[in-house]
């Protein structure tokens, strides 16, 4: 059995977490001194999809952390007069994109489940 269930589960988990972070940014759009946060996705890909199996001690291992522990990061671009750097349009765009990614992974997971069900049923 391949690891697609595990991967998709993690992807859904990731999109849920990122959704919360973005919701928090939007909630704090007028909070003085607040800095926008985000979750990084590249490390997940690196760890889960592109990781190579090391068969020798001297193989270079991926240094990436597990994405569940991937901490929220600060982004600093422009800073408003209230020392806040949340840009509403960018946050909404990120949220839409993230929600679509979440929906896509849910759809993929459902399809995968259906494939397994079909395989079991039709001998």
């Amino acid at each position: 059995m391949d690891n697609s269930f595990y991967l998709l589960e993690n992807l859904i988990h990731f999109t849920n977490k990122r959704h919360k972070v973005i919701a928090s940014n939007i909630a704090n759009i007028d909070t003085p001194d607040f800095r926008a946060k985000d979750l990084r996705f590249s490390k997940v890909l690196d760890k889960e999809l592109l990781a190579l199996t090391d068969t020798h001690d001297r193989h270079i291992r991926s240094e990436s952390e597990k994405f569940n522990k991937n901490t929220t990061t600060l982004e600093s671009n422009l800073i408003w007069a209230d020392r806040n750097n949340v840009e509403l349009d960018i946050e909404i765009a990120k949220m839409t994109e993230n929600a679509l990614l979440g929906e896509a992974s849910i759809k993929l997971l459902s399809t995968r489940m259906r494939m397994f069900k079909d395989a079991v049923r039709r001998r």
Partner: peptide, 29 residues
């Protein structure tokens, strides 16, 4: 006006979250 816009942005964020939850409920269907 700024308060209204911020309120609206949060309403849409709320709705997107709701949509995402509804979709999550459909896993395995």
């Amino acid at each position: 006006m700024m308060a209204t816009r911020a309120y609206e942005a949060n309403v849409s964020a709320f709705n997107i979250s709701k949509e995402l939850f509804m979709k999550t409920m459909e896993i395995g269907r």
